[in-house]
Design a protein around this nucleic acid. Structure first.
Length: 589
RNA sequence: GGGAGCGUAGAACAGUCUGGAGUGUUCGCCGGCCUGUCAAGCCGGAGGUCGCGGGUUCAAAUCCCGUCGUUCCCGCCA
């Protein structure tokens, strides 16, 4: 072997095909497995392209005996067909093998903390501690590649459509609205802070003022809120905006992007345009503004049936302006334990309780509340929910929002398919402009730069005003949202006022932006969706962490690097920062 | 801020409810045998702070309290 002065290898593993039979190739990669039969040794050589089998005679190549899993090796050998009957149909290179003439260890590996194998289920903490090994596993490596193909498809599509990719700052000013900001202290201006962007929202609107007309960016965003399976403190969005646009322009651009990504990652053609559902209808039928349309189990209104019922819980809910609704979850195994579990689940969504009924053969129901319901009420409930014998019916009585939220959560829990094999994309449109907080105050439901459908209607009754805002959803996962923006500074000021941001505050915080709107701002709108979530669904992963190369745990820790860490006192001093008693106490322990 | 689950050998688990010697399984690791395997096979071996701290008990992986870590969820997430 020549020591690899000019090239280490001639081919990647799966580039070697039956066409190369008889040729000498030089391969380099990792030892996936060694199968030592004494007189003959097989090596599965893995590189980023895949696997190929190397055969070595240990008498000629004693080093073959010393190879261990994940050693890096360089193998020179001649490609030959495998003996008849020993082909491996599970391998792309399964009809051939490389007969080793030379084996060189490029680097050795310690005993592994876990095996480089999708079948090994390893605790996530261990995987994150050794993420560089975790990423060698085929599934994770495939996720990395899928992510790269997704961003490539996005760039290709938007480039073809004439979009300009523009970068916006990641050190921006803090705005207390929305999510908690990640703050970065300024050294040159002690006591002042930058924030990391929650999204490039205002900058992309300024790019519209700047005449860009069609902008996009694959943007890292930061929101300092609690973690979930689909939420990390930093994440990546496709951010996009267009001038002289109305809703259909936004939908068209986003649909083309989604179709391209789905085509490249799944090999299927999305049926466009995507279905649309109003926010109100989504809430009424599915109890969610991100409904999973892959299954039915729709929410059904039972209020009229039980309005006059002797069962006070039902009649009372209807009488006080609330509602009584139910879902038919089908013939599931039903037990006291299951009922208790789902009742607890219902309570986490604010319901006071959960009524369950099992439809019996004789037309009655088995239920803790059966004795309070008349035969006719039971019959009508069964009919309305299309109950067959054995079906379990779940009913909640409360104010509308509590009822649909609770039933929506139960529907998802009981009906959601295990995998993301099927894809059900949809637009949710006609979001309310504002939401009422628990204290009665009003907040925006999208963001404060969203245009109302009707300015007059917004003035008259803000609480029922509809916004030009929309979400895109797939399989019950909210991918992202967008809107037509306010391009008239007078309307923008008015919205701030409705939100309770007084004129002075608005000028102080957003005056620079309002001023920009004064210089001939084109009507514009746009959208942003989470690339992590989209790739997660398309790769059929249950957690966003599995499509993020180096994610953080639920407490914001990177188990590999140890971040976040304490910093030297001098660093803090330079920034004019003094730790408070709470921080100091925590660091003590 | 709150609720729930998990923590036992390098990895994944069983054992915990009903206390009785660190008992066990699979993979990995070390040694030996083995010429067509592909999660090779066979034989032998090593490997343990039962997360940590405290309590109850003659006796704690097991019961109780606290704590740390991790996962899922509610709140939060323009």
């Amino acid at each position: 072997m020549d020591g690899g002065q000019e090239m280490i290898r001639s081919h990647r593993a799966t580039e070697v095909t039956p066409d190369h039979i008889g040729e000498e190739v030089v391969l380099a990669g990792w030892v996936q497995r060694r199968r030592d039969h004494g007189g003959i040794t097989f090596l599965d050589l893995r590189d980023a392209s895949g696997l190929i089998q190397v055969v070595a005679d240990p008498e000629q190549h004693p080093v073959a005996e010393e190879l261990r899993m994940e050693y890096c090796v360089r193998v020179t050998g001649v490609v030959r067909p495998r003996p008849e009957g020993t082909e491996n149909p599970n391998l792309a290179t399964g009809t051939i093998e490389v007969a080793a003439d030379g084996i060189e260890v490029l680097s050795t590996a310690k005993v592994l903390p876990f095996m480089i194998d999708d079948r090994a289920e390893v605790e996530e903490l261990v995987r994150l501690r050794y993420r560089y090994l975790d990423l060698r596993r085929p599934k994770m490596a495939a996720n990395l590649r899928a992510r790269s193909r997704a961003t490539a498809a996005i760039r290709r599509t938007l480039d073809d459509l004439g979009f300009l990719e523009v970068e916006t700052p990641t050190l921006v000013n803090s705005t207390p609205e929305g999510a908690r900001d990640m703050l970065v202290p300024s050294r040159l201006r002690k006591g002042e802070f930058y924030a990391l962007p929650q999204s490039p929202q205002l900058f992309k609107q300024l790019l519209m003022v700047a005449g860009v007309e069609r902008y996009f960016q694959i943007a890292r965003c930061y929101r300092d809120e609690d973690f979930r399976a689909d939420r990390q403190i930093e994440f990546t969005q496709l951010d996009l905006e267009g001038s002289f646009w109305e809703r259909e322009d936004v939908f068209d651009a986003i649909e083309q992007v989604l179709a391209a990504v789905v085509r490249d990652l799944r090999g299927v053609e999305l049926s466009l345009p995507l279905p649309r559902l109003s926010w109100q209808e989504a809430m009424d039928r599915y109890g969610s503004d991100k409904p999973d349309l892959r299954f039915g189990m729709e929410i059904t209104d039972l209020s009229d049936i039980v309005a006059g019922s002797e069962f006070g819980v039902f009649a009372g809910a209807v009488g006080s302006g609330g509602t009584v609704r139910g879902i038919n979850v089908g013939p599931v195994d039903w037990s006291r334990a299951r009922a208790d579990e789902l009742t607890e689940k219902a309570k986490t969504h604010g319901a006071r309780g959960l009524v369950w009924m099992v439809a019996e053969e004789d037309g009655s129901v088995r239920s803790p509340v059966a004795k309070f319901l008349s035969e006719q009420e039971i019959a009508e409930i069964r009919e309305r929910l299309e109950a067959c014998p054995g079906d379990v019916l779940l009913v909640v009585a409360d104010r509308w929002r509590t009822v649909v939220d609770t039933l929506g959560a139960l529907r998802t829990e009981l009906g959601r398919p295990q995998s993301h094999e099927d894809l059900a994309f949809l637009w949710v449109i006609d979001f309310p402009m504002f939401e009422e907080e628990e204290d009665g105050s009003i907040t925006f439901s999208h963001h404060p730069f969203t245009s109302p459908v009707s300015i007059d209607a917004m003035r008259e009754d803000p609480k029922s005003a509809v916004a030009k805002a929309y979400d895109v959803v797939v399989n019950g996962v909210e991918l992202g949202s967008g809107s037509i923006r306010i391009h008239d500074p007078a309307v923008q000021r008015e919205v701030f006022e409705i939100l309770g941001i007084d004129r002075d505050t608005a000028e102080r915080r957003f005056g620079w932006f309002l001023e920009a709107l004064e210089y001939g701002t084109p009507p514009h709108g746009g959208f942003a969706f989470g690339i992590d979530r989209l790739v997660m669904v398309l790769q059929d992963e249950a957690s966003i962490r599995d499509v993020i190369p180096f994610p953080k745990t639920q407490t914001g820790v990177d188990p590999m690097t140890g971040a976040p860490t304490q910093v030297a006192a001098e660093q803090l001093e330079e920034l004019g920062i003094l730790l408070g008693p709470e921080a100091l106490e925590r660091l003590e322990n």
